[in-house]
Design a protein around this nucleic acid. Structure first.
Lengths: 230, 230
DNA sequence: CGAGGCACTGCCGGAAACTGACAGTTCCCG
DNA sequence: CGGGAACTGTCAGTTTCCGGCAGTGCCTCG
């Protein structure tokens, strides 16, 4: 096995563990000596991986992912840049918007000048979404709950103005027309429901993990709604 | 210089040349032997680079670009995926739409399963754009003209229904509300003009390069319109 | 048509890098 | 305070890399 492949394997190992994992353990799994492991970790850190080691504990990889070298055509790059621009500007989720900008600048930074110009020529004139309803809650909290498969308690104001409290199992955030909605299982109705994010007036994250896997719920929901998987 | 850096340098060299460049020349520029150059090219090809060599001529890199290993946070990945989904589904430009899908599948292919699920959880429910006016021309032609800084002759139907022929210097494609427009210098009006792509009834690309640099026109237009550079 | 240039491959010896083992230091935890 | 773990330096042994050489097939140009 070549060195570069081994480095990717090391990343994979670190990513799959939430708890810190010790150097000797990693070395054993990879079939290399401890000394070499330390060198490999140093190499990864030099390449930008955010690996932290603490004596007595082990190594942890801060959330993130390293994309291996990828080949894109000019059109593909332009599509990615255009999409990221749209997210950066259009998304009302402040965190997601900032992430899009960061991703964009990382990509632009490594683009040759010729392609960078080309990418900048496909710009966005998206209307500044003034008419878009302001969210009263932090959509990032919802995204976090989805990622960790946690239940969520929300205050929701229906179309008729009546307010209700619901516990939902969120598994997806989507855009419908220009309104963002969170889709989840509603414990009150015992059915799938969509909630417009701009109508959620309060939000309480919980530590309660919901029972089904997110992917399973997504699949069931898609089948019921008759939505193609892409 | 490490081997991986050298491989990137090699790509850079190939990208900047339009004409085929011979192996000995490349080897000299990189400061390596011919034998090693052949090995490096074989490595790049194995990694997916579309390099073609012909005896008597030299090497050419088919249009494309290799992104070096990049570190993205989970949020950044999600932003990119979301944006690409939007382009794939929303864009009326068939070529761009397909490129977005291809880029998406390339990215998803290398994502660890955990992140892939997470990325799929942020889906798009974009309305299927039924009301979006059908373009009568191939927007890809416009994009190509922009990339190559070529003049374009268009038949344009104004809001009043009157048709006119214009020669424009296109430098940007944008989205305004949900209508795509091409922005360029209009030779007829001697001023910047925006043209809704769904109102362009005919399109003739030319080989005539327009005089100003695209970036310069973009800058001038932005200043006049008072649009921030992002 | 022949000569020369070039892409491409296999082989080999020397150079460079990688690897593992050992020793030693610092820090955290029980 | 002892043990475990993160680190660093050093040094042989091994692997990989690199340049040179020889050879084949293709193309272009004179």
């Amino acid at each position: 096995m070549s060195r570069s492949e081994r480095l990717l394997d090391l990343l994979q190992l670190l990513r799959n563990k939430r708890m810190p994992i010790t150097g000797p353990d990693l070395a054993r799994e990879l079939g290399i000596s401890i000394r070499t492991l330390y060198r490999d970790i140093a190499t990864l850190q030099a390449q930008g991986a955010d690996i932290q080691g603490e004596p007595g504990l082990g190594y942890v990889l801060r959330p993130g992912f390293m994309l291996p070298p990828l080949m894109f055509s000019a059109d593909e790059i332009e599509a990615i840049v255009l999409g990221s621009r749209w997210v950066a500007r259009r998304s009302a989720d402040e965190r997601l918007s900032r992430s899009a900008e960061q991703a964009l600048s990382k990509i632009l930074a490594v683009l040759p000048s010729e392609l960078r110009e080309s990418a900048e020529a496909t710009n966005l004139l998206v209307a500044q979404t003034t008419k878009q309803a302001e969210d009263q809650i932090d959509a990032g909290v919802i995204r976090l709950a989805i990622r960790n498969e946690r239940k969520l308690v929300i205050q929701y104001r229906g179309a008729d103005g009546a307010s209700s409290e619901r516990t939902i199992w969120p598994f997806m955030i989507g855009f419908f027309e220009s309104v963002r909605v969170v889709v989840g299982w509603c414990e009150l109705r015992e059915d799938f429901r969509s909630f417009r994010i701009d109508r959620i007036t309060a939000l309480t994250p919980t530590e309660i993990r919901y029972q089904k896997r997110r992917a399973v719920m997504l699949k069931a929901w898609r089948e019921r709604e008759g939505i193609a998987s892409r």
